[in-house]
Amino acid sequence: MSYPSLLLQLAQNALVLLIAPLLLGWTSQCRAWMQNRSGAGVLQPYRNLNKLFHKDAVLAVNASALFRATPYILLACMWLAAALVPVLATGLPLSPAVDVIALVGIFALARVFISLAAMDIGTAFGSLGARREMLVGFLAEPALLMVLFTASTISGSTSLITIVETLAHKPFVLYPSMVFAAVAFIMVMLAENARIPVDNPATHLELTMIHEAMVLEYSARHLALVEWAGALKLLAYTTICIALFVPWGIAETGNWGALPLAVAALALKLAGAGAGLALLETLSAKMRIFRVPEFMGTAFLLAVLGLLTHFLLETAA
């Protein structure tokens, strides 16, 4: 492990923490433009965080230590996940730890804690949100794993680094199975990040909430941490999506000259992903909660089909 790569790892960790609210702001801004509103600007999430950090926290009288600790655990999980995904370069000190199954595990850990914290206070909406989150989560997780397995069978490893290197630095090959995997992954991403067909991030109606219902009781710095963690989760999913489906432009191990190009490519891809997400959200309407299992079932089915097509089309030759 050399010092430059250690530095690069630290820089990447700081970068994901800082640009996560920007991606959220950019997505909301694109959505506003598409809906003919002027929008609040791409920096609005930073202003929100700043405001929340300067407020005094209010806690329910029966809140336990778990309720207070959860925002920190949540932020730690999401930061770890977002920092592990190779965004700028491969071959960093944390690279050996980047296993796709471990990533899914980190997301599951965060989900368990936020659901427990939501039920901790004992209000009706918290428990309702927690149950719905668990319903969506347990349907989304197998689909996500199947998508990742499809990518793993192509590259022969569950390490995200190996997958990226196989896809980005080998001669270009069209993988039909990745088409299925991409569609399934986008569906999972919408569900996991509480975006529109499944959940509305901007809703004020408690009965339709999923994610928002769980964090209703949080205020001030706790809420800021939860929101920051949400932004990091969106960034983590977007970067996984980029790593799996459009990995070109990432810097190779020890190739420092490619870094500026990698930064530019990342900015371009994130901007595209944010705009695409806003477009998807503008085009679709929120579905009933009982339609969600159908939606997630379709995602799982597509992921399995991707795996099957891989064995049919890509291993025969």
Partner: peptide
Amino acid sequence: QIINMCAALLLLIAF
């Protein structure tokens, strides 16, 4: 590869 891709799309449309 293009033919394989078309085949995959046909399957997707069938579903």
